[in-house]
């Protein structure tokens, strides 16, 4: 019985470059910056696949290109080159970065969900928690107020936000609550893939535990594939099936999560793992 599942997401040769580049760029990089022309290669030839129901962890130091990749996938920035395919978009045959503006909105609202490290980027802080969710539902074509209210209640309950507070604006919530509202908003239209960018950073331990528990439940109960960026190796160990390691805009190593953490092959990965307290 060979494993024949097709990837939910396939990224091929993603490159995000700031600067014009020059013929010598590839050979004269100091970290991710060309010493000849000054071009910065924020993401450099990244290829990866995410399969149904799996969590793919992404680790690497600040500036290694993790968030650049996530923001490219969520159309927050346009890559210089590369292709990405989603199984739910033209059955994985059309590059999402070639999609029309309307198609990109559909992908963002219905196929992918994004949770940013900073909730300000993912939530409208002045609107109520329920309105934040309704915004997503409306963007997906829902118009029936009663049904949207019920869906908002269901989603907020799932992330342990009291439904009695669904009318309040997230700016009055704690950081952990804002993060959970953001997750519920991202889940509004049952996306096939969830992009989580440092979602537990800056939260205290008990709140972190709630968010981790929530991510585990999303994986187990909804079967959603997750791309999980985290600096916290304990989080990666707990949640990720496979992990990739990034450095200077490139993927330098990938493997099963426990193998990456216990038998890292590359010098940088060994340094990263041995830096743990």
């Amino acid at each position: 019985m060979p494993i024949t599942e097709k990837p939910v997401l396939q990224v091929k040769h993603l490159t995000v470059r700031y600067g014009k580049g020059c013929p010598l760029c590839g050979e004269h990089l100091e970290k991710n910056r060309c010493t000849v022309c000054g071009t910065v290669w924020a993401a450099n030839d990244i290829s990866l696949e995410v399969y149904p129901g799996e969590v793919l962890g992404i680790v690497g130091e600040s500036g290694s290109g993790k968030s650049t990749m996530m923001q490219s996938l969520y159309f927050d920035l346009q890559p210089t080159s590369g292709e990405a395919f989603l199984s739910d978009y033209h059955e994985g045959t059309k590059n999402i970065w070639d999609a029309s503006a309307a198609e990109k909105r559909t992908i963002k609202n219905c196929i992918m969900g994004m949770v940013y490290q900073n909730p300000v980027m993912g939530l409208r802080m002045e609107y109520s928690a329920a309105s934040n969710i309704a915004e997503k539902l409306i963007a997906a074509g829902n118009r029936e107020a009663g049904a949207m209210t019920e869906r908002a209640k269901e989603l907020l309950s799932a992330v342990e936000i009291l439904t009695s507070r669904m009318g309040e604006a997230p700016k009055h919530f704690s950081g952990g609550m804002q993060q959970r509202v953001q997750i519920s908003k991202a889940l509004a239209n049952n996306p096939a893939i969830l992009l989580l960018d440092e979602v537990t950073t800056g939260l205290d331990l008990s709140v972190q535990a709630k968010v981790l528990d929530l991510i585990r439940r999303i994986k187990a109960e909804y079967g959603i594939s997750i791309l999980l960026v985290s600096h916290d190796h304990a989080v990666i160990r707990m949640l990720a099936d496979r992990t990739i390691v990034m450095l200077d805009g490139k993927i330098i190593e990938s493997g099963l999560t426990d193998q990456i953490l216990e038998d890292p092959q590359q010098a940088y990965t060994q340094q990263l793992v041995h830096s743990l307290l």
Binding site: E54, L212, G255, L256
Partner: peptide, 23 residues
Amino acid sequence: EREILYLRRSEIGYVSQFLNIMP
């Protein structure tokens, strides 16, 4: 890696003295 993950879930178990558990 996908095959190994399948085998770990369904056919090969590993037990140590340490408990690896979600909070």
